[in-house]
């Protein structure tokens, strides 16, 4: 018997007036997975998460959470998920304790369990000593932790995290990432939307890249990265960069583009071996003194930019006109 998918989206579509925000996207998330949903600003990440959590009604398509249809069996579907939106929407007039207890009541968690769980979560998130303070006095990182704790007060099987570390200091980011990993190790499925490529790359089992409302790619971070053979690069730094050096490198037959990166020049190429040979020749012939020379594979950032930049501008017009 096949295991029920944690999330199953089929043809999810959202129009705002004539504007197509999410365009018939379909994907599945396995139980116990950390699934990254990556895309530039305005790509449709938050709209997708709003549809998957029942906050927004899809114009077309369906989504099932642990087998429950989000529209037809919304109460059951919502019972198994916890949500951390992109802003910490906690009640700042209430204390951390009251926020957790209220959420527990809203999810129908019995008094004994919600009080026990609230205590555990506040201790886990290092907020127990401040439990009776109104959260208006909390820092952004502390509010974020309260928000995540609220999402975990019920017996969630799927946790949605929308930009969980955005705008936080390094210490808070690390503690939240560590916590997400620990929760996942305990069996929680995590759906993580982010525009932080490295975060997605480090944390996720699989990544979907969304651009202009469509899924551009779904795969493991490593496979997405290695599929980007066309964007290998050679990076070189000279002791002293003579005038005209950049032009010399741009004229190499194997180089498609030269980018300035601080005191280095990055040469984008399809054939790094040939580029290396050509660079050495240029160095010899022009008396240049290199201080570092590195070959680089495609990074997740390269893959992301390639996948999200590949679509033509005409696509926007196509999407706007499609409904007419």
């Amino acid at each position: 018997m096949t295991e029920i998918k944690a999330i199953e989206a089929k043809g999810l579509t959202k129009y705002y007036g004539d504007f197509l925000a999410v365009d018939h996207i379909s994907f599945e998330v396995e139980q116990g997975e950390i699934f990254g949903f990556l895309g530039p600003n305005g790509a449709g990440k938050s709209t997708t998460i709003r549809m998957l959590t029942g906050i927004s009604t899809p114009t077309e398509g369906t989504a099932k959470i642990m087998g429950f249809d989000i529209l037809k069996h919304s109460v059951e579907a919502k019972s198994v998920m916890g949500i951390v939106p992109d802003i910490s929407n906690i009640y700042t007039e209430l204390s951390a304790w009251e926020n957790l207890i209220f959420t527990g009541k809203l999810y129908g968690v019995s008094k004994d369990i919600r009080e026990k769980k609230a205590e555990e979560l506040l201790q886990l998130f290092d907020l127990y000593d401040r439990r009776d303070d109104k959260t208006v006095e909390f820092s952004r990182g502390m509010r974020r932790r309260v928000c995540i704790a609220m999402a975990l007060i019920s017996d969630s099987k799927v946790l949605y995290l929308d930009e969980p570390t955005s705008g936080l200091d390094v210490k808070s980011v690390r503690s939240i990432r560590k916590l997400i990993r620990e929760l996942n190790e305990d069996g929680l499925t995590v759906f993580l939307t982010t525009h932080n490529i490295e975060e997605a790359s480090q944390m996720c089992d699989r990544i979907a890249i969304i651009n202009r409302g469509r899924i551009a790619e779904i795969d493991t971070p490593e496979r997405i990265r290695t599929a980007m053979k066309s964007t290998q690069a050679v990076e070189i730094a000279f002791k002293e960069q003579k005038k005209g050096t950049r032009e010399l490198l741009e004229n190499l037959s194997s180089v498609t583009e030269v980018q300035k990166r601080g005191d280095k020049l990055r040469l984008i190429t399809n054939d790094s071996a040939q580029t290396l040979r050509q660079i050495l020749q240029v160095i010899d012939e022009n008396g240049l003194v290199p201080i570092s020379l590195n070959t680089l594979g495609a990074s997740m950032e390269d893959a992301f930019l390639w996948l999200t930049g590949a679509e033509m501008e005409s696509e926007i017009i196509h999407r706007r006109n499609r409904r007419k």
């Binding site: 109460v75 919502k78 809203l106 129908g108």
Partner: peptide, 9 residues
């Protein structure tokens, strides 16, 4: 939004 995403009609 907390109400809309909670198991409550």
């Amino acid at each position: 939004e907390r109400f809309l995403s909670a198991p409550i009609s």
